[in-house]
């Protein structure tokens, strides 16, 4: 499929797991970013149709990157993908404009359902 998806995660293991999952559903147009700086640069340059965004990065450890990306494009489809599954933080992210929140470890089916639903509504 042609949908461009940006994975923002500093852990190569996590990125590989997500890529494998996306590839299994024929999502192969994938960009990767390992830092917030890298994410902002690729988000701005390539305008991906979906972003899978981790919270803990080498240069960020809160929801400020979500805020920054939504300032650049308020209509961006950003799905949080983090082990930090605290109810308060999930609620904060959704209130700020994240489309969904996937808590690690996740099931492939859950991730694909969310991705498919968001990209079908493009």
């Amino acid at each position: 499929m042609d949908n461009l998806i940006l994975i923002v995660d500093d852990a190569v293991f996590a990125r590989n797991l997500i890529k494998k999952c996306l590839n299994s559903a024929n999502y192969t147009h994938i960009l990767e970013a390992t830092t917030a700086k890298d994410a902002i640069s690729k988000f701005t340059a390539f305008n991906p149709e979906l972003v899978l965004l981790d919270i803990t990065l080498p240069d960020r450890k809160d929801l400020s990157l979500l805020e920054d990306l939504l300032k650049i494009n308020p209509d961006a489809k950003i799905v949080m993908n983090s082990a930090i599954g605290q109810d308060l933080i999930i609620a904060d992210a959704l209130k700020m404009g994240a489309k969904d929140f996937i808590v690690k470890p996740f099931e492939e089916k859950q991730l694909l359902n969310i991705v498919k639903n968001l990209l079908q509504n493009n």
């Binding site: 803990t56 809160d62 930090i84 605290q86 308060l88 933080i89 904060d92």
Partner: peptide, 16 residues
């Protein structure tokens, strides 16, 4: 930390 957050209504972030 999620378990502690549930008990205490606190937000806790991890670093690298």
């Amino acid at each position: 930390l999620s378990a502690i957050s549930k008990y205490t209504d606190m937000r806790v972030f991890t670093s690298s």
